[in-house]
Design a protein around this nucleic acid. Structure first.
Lengths: 207, 207
DNA sequence: GATGCGGTCAAACGACCGTTTGAATACTAG
DNA sequence: CTAGTATTCAAACGGTCGTTTGACCGCATC
């Protein structure tokens, strides 16, 4: 739980701790008292800096999602620029940014888990927020997939992508729990895991 | 929300309503007051019949899981009896029982969604309960898959099955949300969806 | 008709929830 | 140094949480 270090601002400490606690206990399950206690800030700080718990949740998403969306769209643009790109390249553009974010930024691994939780929540308010801030990215990927999978009609493609997105999100959320062999380094382990994930998803989409 | 009919016993009404509300709002998000109000039952009835909210949650699982496990193991045994069975048969033995349960028993569709939620919860207590009551089934399926996928080492196989279980659970939870074409009946739609799911998972496992 | 018992009920318990308040403090600009 | 703004703080707000209590009910048994 890194951002309880005092050299981070109150706002950043709250965001960091909230991220890990939401990942661990869910949005309803993690209370503001737990968050502020772990972040070593006053209880009222959440409402002062964010206005409400609901807004805090949204801010937890916005902080990482902005960066993740940028990377994913950039990666997708690079793939589209290559006229000989294949299905695996598009999947790579989707998976790799999340992979890298979960590695460098300290709480990134926790965020991928928060993302997986949001996927499970059928809360109307949260879904609307995510669709507003995230939908255009998924739509761009969907059209990229559509060009590579012309044998699938629109309906078929969409629910298949829904499965893929869910499977990938969940698989990435469990990255930390897949034990790696002793001899391989963390970096190469993740690299190999990503390759497997992509191969799995590509085969499922082509089937 | 069918089991609010008065011809069901108090216990059954609570279980049925709790199932749908847990599916919709999560275990922490659905309160006993919401449950008892929707079930038209006194608040104290939950603690009288189940002891605690925690035990109620476990009972919601136990009720359906017992039946689901029986069906899955029976289907798997039938598959194993056929010496020429293939990967798709084992996947079918896993998917079809959940599919059928989500069709006939009124709250079955909600339960599959509860199962998906439990998959997202990293709560230690709940995971232990599920692993105690569910683990042996997954282990039997794992050995069946192991025989059909000899090219995968044990480590590789296990996290791949983890992905498949997650993807299938989530896909099945969203069954109700995949819109079907107007001309096809509900039964044939589910049949086709199951076939797609199995083909998708089989391709991913073989890749 | 009294006794015992499983079930239901309204009411209350203490704990915890998200949020608000108003005073105390830290910081910055004039 | 001072005035003013931004932040932190302890305390309290009303509300909801899971759980417990004790009275009350219907009903079978003697």
């Amino acid at each position: 739980m890194p951002p309880s270090q005092p050299n981070f601002s109150t706002k950043e400490r709250i965001l960091g701790v909230a991220e890990t606690l939401f990942a661990r206990h869910g949005f309803a399950g993690a209370s503001l008292r737990q968050v502020t206690a772990a972040a070593k800030v006053n209880l009222a700080a959440v409402n002062y800096h964010f206005g409400s718990k609901e807004s805090l949740i949204e801010e937890v998403f916005r902080r990482r999602l902005d960066e993740l969306n940028r990377y994913r769209l950039a990666a997708l643009a690079a793939v589209n620029a290559n006229p000989e790109h294949v299905l695996e390249d598009v999947l790579d553009a989707f998976v790799r940014p999340a992979l890298e974010q979960s590695m460098d930024s300290a709480g990134g691994a926790a965020f991928v888990r928060v993302l997986a939780r949001a996927y499970a929540e059928h809360d109307e308010r949260l879904r609307k927020f995510l669709s507003d801030n995230y939908g255009h990215v998924l739509r761009e990927f969907a059209t990229a997939f559509a060009h590579l999978l012309p044998h699938l009609d629109k309906e078929e493609l969409y629910w298949r992508l829904d499965i893929v997105a869910g499977a990938l999100t969940y698989a990435m959320a469990d990255f930390g729990m897949i034990k790696r062999r002793g001899e391989t380094s963390e970096a190469t382990h993740r690299e190999r895991t990503a390759e497997h994930l992509i191969r799995f998803a590509a085969a499922g989409l082509r089937a």
